[in-house]
Design a protein around this nucleic acid. Structure first.
Lengths: 179, 179
DNA sequence: CAATACGTACAGAAAAAACTGTACGTACAA
DNA sequence: TTGTACGTACAGTTTTTTCTGTACGTATTG
């Protein structure tokens, strides 16, 4: 095994490690491989570059680069004179984590909150319907309690996301370990 | 639509909302439905209960309840006189979030860190091999830099997980909104 | 001891997701 | 305007994941 192969092996280990954990970002392993490859390339890549490098179709590259962009792991960059789209991995991994966390969870909180609001309104209405037995009323009240509880939880989660988004998390957990 | 159906509809909305976001916990939608159903039932359930309630096989219930347990969303409870396994959703959703976060990310950090350590060792070794061109040496040095950077990042992530695990996150983002 | 109840391993079926190739729309070039 | 280069929508294929039914091991009951 020559030096170049050893280098490749070292890179491949890291890339595979990323590929196998990228599901935490809601992405399939191949997107992780794409990201890993781009991380070691020190230049912006075109879809054709990626396709050649990974031996996958350009269509796939196009699809997964969009996912990677939406999760904020890569970004499009411009270089004058180049007509093709160029992409580059973001270089601040702390910020990558924060962005991904923010994007993923904000959406979830928003969807959940909407559902809770609707159901809560329905249940409060239902309480005053006239074909309600005492037994059913008790169940409704319990459900309302539950929904109020999880609404409170989602409010906390929303504030947690705020704390990430506006960098307050780095006050609690500083970037650099002090020796 | 009678009162009971309205109640069911309200519950179903919440359950579906959970089902569609449970992928953030690394679980399939059906596990979310299972969790949602268990959340509204105010009692521990057996696999047979779940099977009947969701109209799915007992085998499926067994598999997904294990995933739910591993992600710390539900737990097994004991009731004397009952031979079947009983499961209940955990009632502290804040803690559910913290546990899931901790479990998922700790594993990822651990795997990544191991890979980085190995590759870093290889590259440092490779630097001193005698068939290395200056050009290749430069690439190796760049790779080492990259690995040192992400190692630092994973150290931060590890400390972030610590902050969740030992509840410090609630100092930064308190459970109750103060008015 | 035998009989029954229970949970899950395992293999195959069904469903979902990822991947590919073609075809098309858009933008720039000549 | 026509021609070319590019990215992606879409339909079909392949791969992966999820779900089911059977069969088995263990534990409890009589």
């Amino acid at each position: 095994m020559d030096a170049y192969e050893k280098l490749e092996k070292s890179r491949k280990r890291i890339t595979e490690s990323i590929a196998q954990n990228i599901h935490l970002y809601g992405l399939p392993p191949s997107a992780g491989r794409q990201f890993g490859m781009m991380f070691f390339e020190n230049r912006p890549l075109t879809l054709d570059d990626m396709s050649a490098e990974l031996g996958m179709s350009k269509t796939s590259m196009s699809t997964s680069i969009r996912s990677l962009s939406e999760a904020k792991l890569v970004e499009r960059v411009w270089e004058r004179g180049v007509r093709k789209d160029l992409y580059e991995v973001k270089d601040d991994w702390y910020q990558i984590f924060v962005d991904m966390f923010t994007v993923k969870w904000r959406r979830a909180v928003s969807l959940h909150t909407a559902a809770i609001r609707k159901s809560l309104a329905e249940l409060k209405e239902l309480k005053h319907a006239d074909d309600i037995t005492d037994e059913l009323l008790a169940v409704i009240e319990t459900d309302i309690e539950k929904l109020l509880y999880i609404r409170e939880y989602y409010d906390w989660l929303d504030r947690l996301i705020d704390a990430f988004e506006d960098q307050k998390i780095f006050d609690l957990v500083p970037r650099l370990e002090e020796e």
